[in-house]
Every structure is written in structure tokens, then in C-alpha cells.
Design a binder for these strands. Structure first.
Lengths: 188, 188
DNA sequence: ATATTTATGAGAGTAGACTCCTATTTGAGA
DNA sequence: TCTCAAATAGGAGTCTACTCTCATAAATAT
């Protein structure tokens, strides 16, 4: 990785970090892109060079790893069991530091309505991808009602726990999600 | 109802109707408030007098009627069965015209991300209320994980069907939701 | 009919997201 | 060290949601 690339990655991360901090401190809409630029000590145009739109500053990107894990889960597992498997694997593959950072960001996203709203586009496309993956695993059409219903239930349950977790960081989120999903395995 | 009030209601409805038409025909972002004003033959400032923000042109909530029905569902029904019951009752109480109008608006809301985002606050408070109601019916604490998980699964499934319905208005949404929820009754 | 209250139109003005251009800096390669 | 390509700063400019003001018109009350 060249120096140039490293610098770019660093700048990008810096901008995003400062943006999230400001969003948390004073709200998403109340924060202007100019303020983000100032905080990161770059020009406003530079912010837009890295992030095509303000809402893109909020992207969450550990989705690919989850999808990968879901894809490569043992073929004999049903959809719900596969999701449980993938989640456990993902949790295990993350360093404690990564986990804390991820939790912080997710918490921020879930507790600040504007951020959640801003990331809705990503969330929906992520849900669609999960659905496609589950369909492929089961050898069914993604339009299949059964696939849709299972995906809906799984995502709904995960979100429900997630929301509680965001409100009470003391609880063991991953364990709760696992337990909640276990109850859904009757659907497999 | 005075003449003045009737006129206001008429103007308001006219603005909203024209707005929805334009949003449907050329997209939400691509439609300016000025165009809406022009189509409704009012001044731009008049649009804002009736609707504080562009996104408010789309909002609506028939939530109260559903919650009422849920509250008064037979006590012996489990949570999922109670939700099914309430939904059936709600569907029966709406005229075909109301149903079509509602669907049109929901469709728009679900397919345009920023509209969905705008109504997120209402949606989350609605989910919280459903959870409270289900908890009361079951004689449990709203913080109970079981209540949380059931609510999450139910809401997740309904949204999943809703999204598909929005994409394919030809399908029988209420029936699909009922079928999907039937599969969840094992959790009751 | 007159006075008062309320809704509207018209337009000027603000703010902030986003684009585009140019001069300047900075890393990469010879 | 010198040269070239890429990245940035700085700033001017656009677009549109949204606000404010005031004069006019329409509805209501007396």
C-alpha cells in the first residue's frame, strides 16, 4: 500500500470519524458539511470528493463480512440456523476493539433517529441481500413468500433486540440475539 | 362546518392530491414544491402554510384504529393471533376506496427512502405501543424479552410483506400478511 | 353596510447541499 | 534532483427547501 493510498484512507477515516462525532453531539441535520470539513481540517470540496453525499458519511460497512459468513454457513442448516451461525462467526472474528467501535457506531445510529433515517437506504439494500442469500441457500426463488417471511421475522427480531441493546449497553447483545433467533428456528 | 373551513379542507386535499400525483409520475426528489404549487394552482407559500415540510405532503397514520382493534381482541388469543384478528377487523372496516387510497400512499412511502425516513419516528413509536399492548394482553412486563421478540418478528414479517406489496400492487396484501402471520402462530 | 378577522398571492431573502474551476501542494518515478 | 500525475484548498456559483413580509381579497360578525 503506497503512502498516497494510506494517506487517503486516513483522511477518509478522519472525516467520517469527525462527522459521526458531530452528528452525535449536535444532531445530523443541525450539522453542516462545512462543520465536518472544519473539524477534519479539510476543505468542504474534499469531503464531497470522498463522500458523494452527506448521508454517505454514515455508511456502515461490516455488512460484507456478515454476508460472506452467511453464504459459507453449512449447507444443511435452515435459514434461521444459518443466520445464527453467521452471527456467531462474525462476533468471533472481530477483535474486542473492533467490536467496541462497531457497537458504538451502531448505538449512535440507533439512538439518533436522524442517523437511522439517513442509513435506511443501506439497511434496506442489506435486507434485500440477506433475502437473496437465504433464497439461494434454500434453492428457492427470492420472490418466494416463505423466504420473504423468514427474512422479515429474522430481521425484525434482530432489530428489536438491537434497539433494546442500544438503550441498555449493559446487556449482552449478541447472546440475546442468539437466544431470540433460537426461538425462531421452529420456522426452518 | 363553516364555509371557510370547508374551503381550507378542500385546498389542503387538493394540494396533497396533486403532490402525490407528481411524486408518482416523476419521483419525489425530482418534484419541486413549486411544481406542486403550480399544479394545485396556489402560491408556493400556501403549500408551506398547510404542510410544514415537503415530506409532510405524504404522511398519514391509521395506526389508532389498528391499536384499538388489537386492544379489544378476544383475551384468549395469543399475541400473534390477536394481531391477525385486529388486522382482519381493520381491513373489514375500511371501504374499498379508503383501502385503495391508503395503499397508494403507503406504496409511495415505502418506495421512496426519504419518505420512509421521515415517518420513521411515527413508526417506532407505533411499534413501541404495539409491544406495550401485547405485553398488557399477556400480563407480562413490556421489557420481557419474549414480548420484545414476538413484537419484532410480527412487525418484521408485516413489513416484509408490505414491501413486496408496494412493489407489486397486484397481490392481495392483507391475505398475504395473514398467511405470513399464521406461520408465526407457533410462537404464541 | 361596515368593520374585523383570516387566507392568499407575490416576491424577496436565507441556508445549506452540491458542482465546477483553478492555482497550489504533495507523493511517485526517472 | 527534476518531472509528472494526483490530490487539495479556496472560492465562486447553482438549486431548492423553507421563511418572512406585506398588500389584497374573501369570509364572518356587528
Amino acid at each position: 500500500m503506497s503512502l498516497r493510498e494510506r494517506k487517503k484512507a486516513k483522511t477518509r477515516a478522519l472525516i467520517q470519524r469527525e462527522a459521526l462525532r458531530l452528528f452525535r453531539e449536535q444532531g445530523y441535520e443541525a450539522t453542516t458539511v462545512e462543520q465536518v470539513a472544519e473539524a477534519a481540517e479539510v476543505a468542504t470540496s474534499t469531503v464531497f470528493r470522498y463522500f458523494p453525499a452527506k448521508e454517505d458519511l454514515v455508511l456502515l460497512d461490516h455488512a460484507p463480512r456478515f454476508l460472506e459468513a452467511l453464504e459459507s454457513a453449512p449447507a444443511e442448516l435452515g435459514p434461521v440456523a444459518a443466520v445464527r451461525h453467521a452471527l456467531r462467526e462474525l462476533a468471533a472474528s472481530r477483535t474486542p476493539q473492533e467490536l467496541a467501535e462497531g457497537l458504538e457506531r451502531e448505538r449512535l445510529m440507533l439512538t439518533v433517529p436522524e442517523l437511522w433515517a439517513a442509513s435506511l437506504k443501506n439497511v434496506t439494500s442489506m435486507i434485500a441481500t440477506i433475502r437473496d442469500t437465504l433464497a439461494r441457500r434454500a434453492g428457492r426463488d427470492p420472490a418466494d413468500p416463505w423466504v420473504r417471511d423468514i427474512t422479515g421475522a429474522v430481521v425484525g427480531v434482530i432489530f428489536a433486540v438491537w434497539l433494546d441493546w442500544a438503550k441498555d449497553p449493559g446487556m449482552d447483545g449478541p447472546a440475546e440475539i442468539d437466544r431470540a433467533l433460537a426461538a425462531l428456528e421452529v420456522l426452518d
